[in-house]
Nucleic acid binder design. Structure first.
Length: 273
DNA sequence: ATGCCTTATACAATAAGA
């Protein structure tokens, strides 16, 4: 099963790019971020014609997340991150697709730092950590995919020394990401490419893509019951006409059922007649 | 410190992005 995450930077403004990408890469599930459209303007019909069912959580002008499923309808199980009834920003949606619980998230940017936006980002991550821990405790196969707006390590920034005070690279947000990994989540792209520079975002400014001045801020975190087979970045689409400033990131996975887990269960079964 | 570019909103200029 292939699951991809793509910050489209305007789902209507970049609909032709999105449809091309869907047709050329055919993921089984897709997490979209930055729809920048209210619910009634989500292009459900065009996406349906491309072969994808969808659930979405839009908002006028900014934010907005969606989950698409190839040849089926995603079963929505949550919209909005729990823990703050006053948070009305559309940054989180969750759905079951093909036996996997998939979350599409768009974390706050947090700039300028310091300031209230940075504080909101830190509070949002505290809520996300709490919810991620609950999901992990279920033991279900879970994939948390989206634009985390965090470069986890120096390897994930083209020029780390210039980003130390930025809300995307501040020690406090890198610590939040490290705490997620400490819960037991696997950073799929980093696991697939240990020690290598792999970026998922390039600014529109100063020919950043051509210079490969990139950041790794889009991540897929896998729960222990998800087996990672492969991962990658659909980098070439970033160089196309009218492209998003992000590239899609994907994983090829296998969901492990409880019965297939190694350990006691398997030993018992092999011992029985 | 700011521009560099691009979006949505709404039709000029602003807010936001990262």
């Amino acid at each position: 099963m292939r699951i991809a995450t793509y910050n489209v930077n305007g789902v209507n403004g970049r609909l032709p790019n999105l449809l091309d990408w869907l047709e050329e890469t055919r993921p089984d599930a897709v997490c979209l971020q930055e729809l920048k459209a209210p619910d009634e303007r989500f292009p459900a019909e065009a996406i349906g014609k491309a072969g994808y069912g969808a659930v979405w959580h839009g908002q006028k002008a900014w934010n907005g997340v969606a989950i698409l499923a190839r040849r089926c309808e995603p079963l929505e199980v949550r919209r909005g991150l729990p823990g703050d009834p006053e948070d009305l920003q559309s940054r989180y949606i969750e759905a079951a697709v093909g036996g996997v619980l998939v979350a599409s998230l768009y974390a706050p940017n947090g700039n300028p730092q310091p300031g209230p936006k940075f504080e909101f980002k830190l509070a949002w991550y505290r809520r996300f950590e709490a919810h991620a821990a609950d999901l992990l405790a279920t033991g279900h196969p879970v994939v948390l995919a989206g634009d985390y707006n965090i470069m986890p390590t120096e390897l994930d920034v083209y020029a780390p020394e210039r980003w130390t005070e930025d809300a995307l690279f501040h020690p406090k947000v890198r610590e939040a990401y490290a705490r997620l990994l400490a819960q037991g989540w696997t950073d799929a792209l980093r696991t697939r490419f240990p020690g290598q520079r792999v970026y998922t975002f390039w600014k529109y400014l100063r020919n950043a893509y051509e210079r490969d001045a990139g950041l790794r801020i889009d991540h897929l975190l896998l729960s222990p019951s998800v087996k990672l087979l492969d991962a990658g970045v659909d980098r070439a689409f970033r160089g196309r006409e009218k492209a998003s400033d992000h590239a899609a990131v994907w994983v090829e996975i296998e969901a492990l059922t409880a019965a297939a887990k190694p350990g006691k269960t398997a030993r018992k079964r092999s011992a029985s007649p």
